[in-house]
């Protein structure tokens, strides 16, 4: 199980990533769109890490470190907005369908099934024609589609929690539906919701990069996803691993930390009782 220390550790990582998101651009040693040349005047194409370029360069001679630092901001935003939308829409629909049941459930779940049938990329292209090409609209597109998995699972969880006697007792005591949802259902589906938030953050970052290269998002915002995509498209993925490894690792760490921190936080708020038990055992 997770303890205080590991949770604090993941929290620190998350804070560090948010810090990069805010101050990254100021820390970047070079401009992200400056092509670097070596002493002979050649473009530094996909050079391995060196003292001047600690994370190497890209095939266009850009400094990888600078791009990683500058790219933190759009990445954090993508994760927060995309993951947040997936969480909010998915949980709302899932809990409503699962708890209210009946016709409401049928309508909401058929709508979810419908969204399952919507292919992401063509939908993004259609939607972008209305909203205009842009960084933000590409994230909104992701949020509008990817809540579907969360909705299904959270509905199933809600239906399970609803069956528990403590919910029946609350009903029998006269608790209103909103009260039961807020007090009993939400806290009990929270672990699953946190899982979907973490996954949503990761999906949003990676998918947003994919959309960028279809021309439905702004390619000049160098998020970490976009960096990996660039490396892949350039054909230097294998020969210049330093280009994609750092952003890849950072995305992984972001997703993992969100997830682990969420889990750990859950445990942490349940912890107080366990220590009380330890007291009685020794008493």
């Amino acid at each position: 199980m997770l303890n205080d220390r590991t949770t604090a550790f993941y929290f620190t990582i998350l804070m560090f990533i948010v810090f990069l998101g805010i101050f990254g651009p100021m820390l970047a040693p070079y401009d992200v769109l400056t092509t670097h040349y070596d002493d002979n005047g050649n473009i530094m194409r996909a050079e391995p890490p060196s003292l001047a370029h600690p994370l190497g360069t890209t095939h266009a001679g850009y400094d990888v470190l600078s791009r990683v630092l500058v790219g933190a901001q759009p990445t954090v935003l993508t994760g927060l907005i995309g993951g947040g939308m997936i969480l909010t829409i998915g949980t709302t629909i899932g809990i409503t369908a699962g708890y209210v049941g009946g016709r409401t459930e049928t309508v909401l779940m058929r709508f979810t099934d419908f969204v399952y049938g919507v292919p992401l990329i063509p939908f993004a292209i259609v939607l972008i024609t209305f909203m205009g090409v842009g960084f933000l609209s590409s994230i909104v597109v992701i949020g509008l589609i990817l809540w579907r998995g969360a909705a299904r699972v959270i509905r199933a969880q809600t239906m399970q929690v609803k069956q528990y006697p403590f919910v029946k007792v609350a009903k029998a005591t006269g608790a209103s539906t909103p009260r039961i949802i807020v007090k009993h259902i939400l806290p009990n589906v929270a672990p699953m919701a946190i899982f979907f938030l973490a996954m949503g953050v990761g999906y949003a970052i990676v998918l947003q990069a994919g959309l960028t290269f279809l021309g439905v998002a702004d390619p000049f915002v160098p998020s970490w996803g976009v960096m990996i995509r660039n490396a892949f498209d350039s054909g230097y993925m294998a020969s210049a691993p330093w280009w994609s490894i750092t952003p890849g690792l950072l995305i992984g760490i972001t997703v993992l930390s969100t997830f682990m921190f969420g889990r750990g936080y859950e445990d942490l708020i349940s912890e107080d009782g366990a220590s009380a038990e330890a007291e009685t055992v020794t008493a």
Binding site: Y164, P165, F166, K168, V169, A172, T173, G174, K183, H184, P187, N188, A190, S270, D272, G273
Partner: peptide, 21 residues
């Protein structure tokens, strides 16, 4: 009525909300 009629269920393990003190 809901105040004056109360219930105790069989299963002690699921009768209390695990998230509440």
């Amino acid at each position: 009525y809901r105040r004056n009629v109360q219930v105790v269920f069989q299963d002690p393990f699921n009768s209390l909300d695990p998230k509440m003190t």
